[in-house]
């Protein structure tokens, strides 16, 4: 049964969640990380999911990204319900549809910026020339043209996060999920990263959804969804 049968958004959405619940049991206590979250995210949005620690931001991103399964409810990405997919199907789906940026950058330390960016395309079995050209173009776009042969440990945190953004975009995903992307960055690096993400969003209509409690990010987001105790308490579009 299609769980979105009663859900009737006015505009075609890239991400739809319907009454998402995610409960964790710790001993005798059940924690409701997500408690009935329904939302629509359209193509080209630049959305911040905000809220205090433990409000369910990261859990929501994980469930939307197919890294975690909801206890109840469903997630539909570009008209495909991912909730009941098997592990291998989900991995393949993520590879083709979702870009990820992590708080701790999580680049492969033994690969250069160029190789890190190419890596996702390699997993997609793209030809060498094509992935090489796209990786260079993306690194140029995030302002790292001169750093492409540097390893992560030779780069600053801001530079590493920009490589992570380039990597996330390399596979031409339908959207990018970024979990606290600026948490480890200083204010200049945060500003630079936001500039790049906004530019990509505006020029190439790349959809960004990020969790954050960084006010600088919240200020520049076009839509801010606020979570508290696993529930959406506000959803503002600027």
């Amino acid at each position: 049964m299609n769980q979105f049968a009663d859900y009737n958004p006015i505009i075609m959405s890239i991400i739809k969640t319907n009454n998402l619940e995610r409960f964790y049991t710790e001993g005798d206590v059940t924690v409701k990380a997500l408690n009935g979250v329904s939302l629509n995210i359209e193509e080209g949005e630049f959305t911040a999911i905000v809220g205090p620690s433990g409000s369910g931001k990261t859990t929501l991103l994980n469930v939307i990204g197919g890294l975690d399964s909801p206890t109840n409810g469903a997630v539909e990405i570009a008209n495909t319900e991912i909730t009941n997919m098997k592990d291998n199907e989900l991995i393949d789906f993520r590879l083709k549809n979702i870009g990820f940026v992590f708080q701790a950058y999580n680049l492969i330390p033994v690969l250069s910026a160029l190789e890190n960016t190419e890596f996702i395309m390699l997993l997609q079995n793209q030809p060498k020339e094509k992935r090489h050209a796209r990786a260079i173009a993306l690194l140029e776009e995030v302002g790292l043209k001169d750093q492409i042969y540097k390893k992560p440990n030779e780069m600053s945190g801001g530079q590493q996060q920009r490589v992570a953004v380039a990597r996330a975009l390399a596979s031409k995903p339908k959207f990018v999920l970024a979990d606290e992307p600026t948490a480890n960055l200083d204010s200049k690096s945060t500003g630079d990263l936001l500039d790049i993400m906004l530019e990509l969003n505006e020029k190439e209509k790349t959809t960004f959804i990020f969790s954050t409690h960084d006010q600088r990010v919240i200020d520049r987001a076009k839509r801010v969804i606020t979570l508290e105790d696993g529930k959406i308490i506000s959803d503002e579009t600027k």
């Binding site: 991995i91 393949d92 993520r94 990820f100 997993l123």
Partner: peptide, 8 residues
């Protein structure tokens, strides 16, 4: 991370 980004 590798599993997350799609390494099977």
């Amino acid at each position: 991370m590798l599993m997350a980004v799609g390494m099977n």
